[in-house]
């Protein structure tokens, strides 16, 4: 068995990303879609951190992870606020019902 290296982390992140995509597509609940998006973001961030350890990027890679986390938090806040607004209007968080742009 080879020792754990860059490939392992990258492949794990590929798995997480695919799960995230599957989750985001398969669900109709807006919160569940958000869960899928968070999975994808975490996969990307994990990638960056792994490259920062094994590649030539040192602190810059981690810096990007930090910003990804901050942006993910911001995105979650806005997304959940939108979900609340939609829920108040439609009494549901089913994105299939929120399919009109106006009204």
């Amino acid at each position: 068995m080879t020792s754990v290296g860059l490939h392992h982390f990258v492949l794990l992140s590929a798995v997480l990303f695919s799960l995230g995509i599957a989750c985001a597509i398969a669900r109709r609940n807006a919160v569940a879609i958000l869960v899928g998006i968070e999975l994808m973001l975490n996969a990307a961030a994990l990638n960056l951190a792994a490259f920062s350890r094994f590649g030539a990027l040192r602190a810059e890679g981690q810096l990007f992870v930090l910003f990804v986390i901050v942006l993910a938090a911001a995105e979650a806040v806005v997304g959940l606020a939108l979900i609340l607004a939609i829920h108040r209007r439609l009494r549901s968080v089913d994105v299939h019902r929120a399919d009109s742009l106006k009204g």
Binding site: I21, A24, I25, A26, R27, R28, I33, V95, H96, D99, S100, L101
Partner: peptide, 13 residues
Amino acid sequence: QTGRLPNYLAGLA
């Protein structure tokens, strides 16, 4: 042509 999010997301993927 629904305006449904998951369908568009699937198209993207």
